[in-house]
Write a protein that binds this DNA or RNA. Structure first.
Length: 591
RNA sequence: CAGGGAGUAGCUCAGCUUGGUAGAGCGUCUGGUUUGGGACCAGAAGGUCGCAGGUUCAAAUCCUGUCUCCCUGACCA
């Protein structure tokens, strides 16, 4: 509630093009309702006009972000959206980003990009600005349109090619201490928590795939929503929550000594894409098979790595990296074949044929009778038993949690508890970057000891337009949007009944003006429409407080009042009480 | 990018199989009657049928090419 800027707008004199029917291509509720309620209109694939209602909400979200980040010690600035491609040379992100980067050529043939984020720009800027250890910590942010050539934009504002993002970057010389990265990171974590709480969102802060520094170096802020694109795993006992990519799994029982129950038998299994088909052919299921993934360590003298998981599980590269202490990547299929691996038909038995490191997930040691590859094209075996058929594994292999967690897995933080899966929409992500960009781009300063040191960085993003969409995604009913007061385009929606009749409009605008002077934003539906469409439109646009002004109630010295969340009809309120009621509602909600 | 679908009035769609002067509902505009949950009557405006070729006496309709949009997958705020 900002007194100096509160407004009274007339429906008839702003642009709120509501429609009765949804565009046929919209699937997600936020997309359908934002279009129907006149918040947005498409321009191209993943490109939208933000009409007045959406823009007012986005401004309110931005204002909340500004207040919280300023309070956390950050300063707002603005960098250009257009940037020369040379900036990316140091970090090779023009390749990492690949097709995601919008690239264009100017009239002089210079290659230029539209900014997908601004690590390079700000690091380059800092190279010329940061000269002394006395300048730290420094935390800068901007709110701006970002451009990403998404493979497939979709779901309205949830995944766009041009979208509004707040990105912040912090600079430090150490991790610990007052000026350290950890201190700023924690402040930003708290600021994000405040921001999303004030926006009225039901969200979870979850651990995400850690950056190069390790530890809990990255958190995602996820709006809890069944339609979300991301899966997070939570422990109901301890409160532990993590992205599916990152989630640890609690201790699992395993044994080398399961008794063999069948002989090893070879089967011809040609032309069966997918483990399900093979399992069916072998008379078992995916959970009865071993999946053996060929990887390589990423170092100067690469080494083969075999990761073994149960057939219905997925290998997690990050976990393999953590188990081995070196980064790994999927092996190139041609190279692996040349080295003797029958890609697609690899079994753990390769441990005895090729010099390699083997990592086994505990669940792959949960039985004495497995189906797996035969190390020969188009063939699998059944009856594999670790103790009988590959005794060397017990001494040579590493056992570690190397697979993606899933619902029902034991919690890593509470004995006996099981992880539950929830869906979410990622609206914020905070990162400890370390020296990735500063080292690549030569950003260093002299520390107290006159030693040149690479600057340590953190980066912090919020999808502003996505935050609006995810709010609507999780807060709507069959009739339309239900906006929280803090980010609603207007606080109060005054509906006039029979606006042609003497005094109705005057009454409505007098009331609106009283509210405005107390810092409340008001939309007055002054259209000469019948009541039906006005009520329908009001439900659709979802402004939280509704006042109905009609000839009848004016005569009685009353108005009608209803919250968007209330069921049924509005109730009568004395005219002289309505302003206080609205002020209490606005003040009593998160701002 | 791969697989699937769609481009016809501002919006939602029919018409295409079987070629013959462009249709409906909603919305918009005018006049009238109406005014508590998407009214009614009368009238009107609005489309080179995505684009370019081709076949034909004749193409929204058949053929070829091309562009755009949507849905499902890998990425991310």
């Amino acid at each position: 509630m900002n007194r100096s800027q509160a407004v009274v707008h007339r429906w008839s004199q702003t642009l709120i093009p509501t429609t009765r029917e949804a565009p046929s291509d919209a699937q997600m509720p936020s997309h359908i309702f934002m279009t129907r309620a006149g918040y947005i209109r498409p321009v191209g694939a993943g490109i939208y006009n933000y009409l007045p209602l959406a823009w007012r909400s986005l401004q309110k979200i931005s204002q909340i972000i500004r207040e919280e980040l300023d309070a956390a010690g950050a300063s707002e600035m603005l960098m250009p959206a257009l940037m020369p491609i040379e900036l990316y040379e140091g970090t090779k992100r023009d390749q990492d980003y690949g097709d995601l980067l919008f690239q264009l050529t100017d009239r002089h043939g210079r290659k230029t990009a539209l900014g997908p984020t601004h690590e390079e720009v700000i690091t380059d800027l800092m190279c010329g600005c940061l000269t002394s250890y006395k300048q730290f910590p420094l935390n800068l942010y901007q709110i701006q349109s970002k451009f990403r050539d998404e493979f497939r934009p979709r779901a309205g504002l949830l995944r766009c090619r041009e979208f509004i993002m707040k990105d912040a970057y912090s600079f430090h010389l150490e991790l610990e201490g007052e000026a350290g990265l950890n201190e700023t990171y924690d402040k930003m974590y708290q600021a994000y928590t405040n921001i999303f709480t004030r926006c009225g969102l039901d969200f979870s802060a979850v651990e995400a795939e850690a950056g190069p520094i390790g530890g809990s170096a990255s958190h995602e802020f996820m709006v809890n929503c069944v339609n979300g694109e991301d899966t997070i795993l939570v422990c109901p006992e301890s409160g532990y929550a993590a992205n599916v990519e990152k989630a640890e799994i609690g201790d699992r029982a395993f044994s080398w000594d399961h008794e063999a129950t069948a002989e090893v038998t070879k089967h011809h299994t040609p032309g069966m894409p997918g483990i399900e088909l093979v399992a069916e052919h072998l008379g078992t299921n995916a959970a009865g098979m071993l999946k053996t993934i060929v990887m390589r360590s990423v170092e100067e003298s690469p080494r083969w790595v075999l990761a073994v998981v149960r057939g219905d599980h997925e290998v997690n590269e990050g976990k393999v990296r953590d188990a081995l202490g070196v980064a790994v990547e999927m092996a190139d299929e041609k190279e692996a074949n040349a080295a003797g691996f029958a890609i697609g038909y690899v079994s753990p038995k390769m441990l005895d044929s090729i010099d390699l490191t083997m990592v086994i997930d505990p669940d792959a040691l949960g039985s004495g009778n497995w189906a797996t590859g035969a190390d020969e094209k188009d063939h699998h075996i059944t009856g594999f038993n670790w103790a009988r058929d590959l005794p060397s594994a017990k001494y040579k292999a590493i056992i570690a949690d190397i697979r993606n967690a899933q619902a029902g897995d034991p919690s890593p933080r509470a004995a006996g508890a099981n992880l539950e899966a929830k869906r979410g929409i990622e609206v914020g992500h905070i990162f400890k970057l370390g020296t990735k960009y500063s080292a690549a781009m030569g950003l260093s300063v002299l520390d107290k000891n006159q030693k040149n040191q690479d600057v340590i960085m953190g980066c912090y993003g919020i999808g502003v337009s996505r935050t609006l969409a995810s709010c609507i995604e999780s807060s709507h009913d069959d009739n339309g949007i239900i906006m929280p007061i803090s980010i609603a385009p207007y606080h109060v929606h005054i509906i006039t009944i029979k606006p042609n009749e003497e005094g109705v409009l005057d009454h409505a605008f007098t009331l609106a003006e009283e509210l405005r002077e107390l810092g409340i934003d008001v939309l007055v539906d002054d259209r000469n429409e019948r009541p039906g469409p006005k009520f329908k439109d009001a439900d659709l646009v979802g402004i939280p407080l509704r006042i109905i002004v009609s000839p009848n109630s004016i005569e009685e010295g009353q108005v009608e009042f209803k919250k968007r969340t209330d069921e049924g009809k509005a109730f009568l309120v004395d005219r002289f009480k309505i302003v206080d009621i609205c002020v209490d509602e606005v003040k009593g909600s998160p701002q």
